[in-house]
């Protein structure tokens, strides 16, 4: 790891200021992606701004029809939250299957969503549930938030303070993990909310995406049979030694059906 200047601001405003002044400053929430990257010397930040000292960024509350999760809330806390379990059990289930227990004790929802790793789990939930991402400067709708591989609508110095998930009538997340890394090789989050049915896929493409044909079919008939024959084109999907694009395309359908079955159980 290259050395850097370390900061642990106590307020969000301080954090933003620290990030602003420097060209190569990085915010760090859980550090579960950043630290491994630094260890491999694949980044050389001048400054690391640790958000761990900022009060009030972590926590889960229910506000009306929404579950609002603070940006610094750890995966383990989402997974074990009684509020999340009762309002959106699929979200608790998803959080409980990220990484491994030690990673879940450190990793945060804000960090995961801001990083937008193509194989991360949370983006599928954010997109499928139509969540709203709140930052220090404003709000983003899920649909316009995930821009591409590791790319989001966040601008420099913009930090996620919370994410608000509307409660779902039915929802489930099914993940086919990469056998080695346990990242999602394909993960499908299916949700039926007041806004309609959404199907979001992570792991398969460069960034999380929705499958409109499945959404339309499920809106008419929320059953796995309804999407059985909806094929996803392999073109443009990820390919590596563990899964070809064709295999991923196939798994999207399988995982989507399983998610629908789980959501209707």
């Amino acid at each position: 790891m290259y050395d850097f200047h370390y900061h642990r601001p106590k307020t969000l405003a301080d954090a933003v200021n620290l990030l602003k002044g420097k060209d190569e400053a990085r915010p760090m929430s859980g550090g579960m992606t950043l630290i491994p990257t630094l260890k491999q010397r694949l980044a050389k930040p001048s400054d690391v701004v640790d958000l761990g000292g900022i009060k009030d960024l972590a926590g889960i509350k229910v506000e009306g029809n929404n579950v609002v999760i603070g940006g610094m809330t750890r995966h383990a806390d989402v997974a074990s939250s009684a509020d999340v379990k009762s309002a959106i059990p699929a979200l608790a289930h998803l959080a409980g299957h990220i990484g491994d227990p030690a990673v879940r004790n450190r990793g945060t929802i804000g960090g995961s969503v801001a990083n937008n790793d193509p194989a991360a789990d949370y983006p599928a939930a954010v997109l499928a549930l139509g969540a709203t991402i709140t930052t220090n400067t404003g709000k983003h709708a899920a649909d316009s938030f995930f821009k591409g591989l590791f790319e989001t609508a966040l601008s420099d110095g913009e930090l996620i303070t919370s994410i608000s998930f509307p409660k779902a009538e039915k929802a489930a997340y099914m993940k086919f993990p990469n056998p080695a890394s346990r990242y999602a090789m394909v993960g499908v989050f299916v949700a039926k909310t007041a806004a309609g049915v959404r199907v979001a896929v992570t792991g398969a493409g460069p960034s999380v995406f929705r499958v409109k044909a499945m959404e339309d079919a499920l809106a008419k008939n929320f059953s796995s049979a309804a999407i059985k024959d909806i094929k996803i084109p392999a073109d443009g999907l990820n390919s590596d030694i563990h899964a070809s694009a064709e295999y991923r395309a196939h798994l999207v359908n399988v995982m989507a059906r399983r998610a629908v079955d789980a959501a209707t159980k």
Binding site: Y6, P36, G52
Partner: peptide, 20 residues
């Protein structure tokens, strides 16, 4: 893996200064 404030954490993926 060690415990930091009672929770299991990979001590290779947390800075010493974070454990202040």
């Amino acid at each position: 893996v060690v415990h930091v404030d009672g929770k299991s954490v990979k001590s290779c993926t947390i800075l010493a200064v974070q454990a202040e």
